[in-house]
Design a protein around this nucleic acid. Structure first.
Lengths: 163, 163
DNA sequence: CATTTTTATGTAATCAGTTACGTAACCAGT
DNA sequence: ACTGGTTACGTAACTGATTACATAAAAATG
């Protein structure tokens, strides 16, 4: 029933966008499964802060290839969660230095484990279907359109692993 | 400078979303090159109307896998352009029948040609790089991040063709 | 130094869509 | 025909980002 499918490469972008949104939605479920209130959109910044220790807003925006207002937005949210803090740079009064809080660092190992899981699951899904772009995207659509598929697959993986 | 690149499959979704947005932006340029004021987001609906002749709002939303408010939105914009019209269904008073106007049909051949061009260019780009999903996405990012690359490539194709 | 330019940040408006919600029309069973 | 449920459409509010604009500090230039 999906005319997009018939249009081939012409509609590749719409499909990828839709797919990306599906993936994001599923990712929220992964965190939820672990009883953790973390949103996928925070991942790049949080991860960056865990690697870089401290970084300015513009720097972060360049590393992550997102706009600086987006960084400010995420920082606001992560500050509210108590995982991130910021302080004026002593050398450069324009600059605001971002870093993880104590609480943020304490949270990191939990996240790390989840990220490792996600990574492994993704790699399994990808290597299974990595023929060419369109077929892969289509395959991903299959996975993610079937509500719950991803999370079931993921759950199975966790269960297997814990044996 | 892009930490996303180091994260592998973990960040696949963000990358695809970004890529999709880039593709869309570039696509606007394609229409602009032809001196046409058409937006890529209208394509699926316009194309559907050219195939189906007439269709209801919900039907369209199902065919295109977008929400019905999105359809309503696009219809509003396309009506303003004078390419689409709508009328109450005689059989079912709830239903609103969408169709192309005279002007819309007259416009179609121009669009068709552009779509064919885009399709061919896409296929060339894809077949050249269609190894696996990640590498393809990366390659696409190369194409679309370099501002103007796509449009230059496209232009070259048009020029070649017209010889 | 005074002046211009650039850089870092912040805010506001905008965009492309979505979900949530409301209403009217149709339909099935009584 | 009456009632409850479902369908089609419309509007509104929200989301996740972006671009555009404003401001202040730093750096570069004469």
């Amino acid at each position: 029933m999906d005319i997009i499918k018939e249009l081939g490469p012409l509609a590749i972008a719409s499909r990828m966008k839709r797919l990306a949104e599906l993936v994001f939605k599923q990712a929220i479920n992964v965190y939820r499964v672990h009883g953790i209130d973390f949103e996928p959109k925070w991942f790049p910044l949080f991860y960056l802060l865990s690697q870089k220790e401290s970084i300015g807003v513009m720097e972060a925006s360049e590393y992550l290839n997102i706009s600086h207002p987006a960084v400010i937005q995420f920082v606001k949210e992560l500050e509210k969660k108590g995982w991130v803090m910021s302080e004026k740079s002593p050398e450069d009064a324009r600059k605001r230095i971002l870093k993880l809080t104590e609480k943020g660092w304490a949270f990191l190992p939990q996240l790390q484990e989840i990220w490792d899981n996600i990574k492994t699951v993704n790699q399994q899904l990808i290597s299974k279907e990595a023929h060419d772009l369109m077929r892969s995207v289509e395959a991903f659509e299959q996975y993610f359109l079937k509500d719950g598929f991803y999370i079931d697959y993921y759950q199975k993986y966790i269960d297997e692993k814990s044996k």
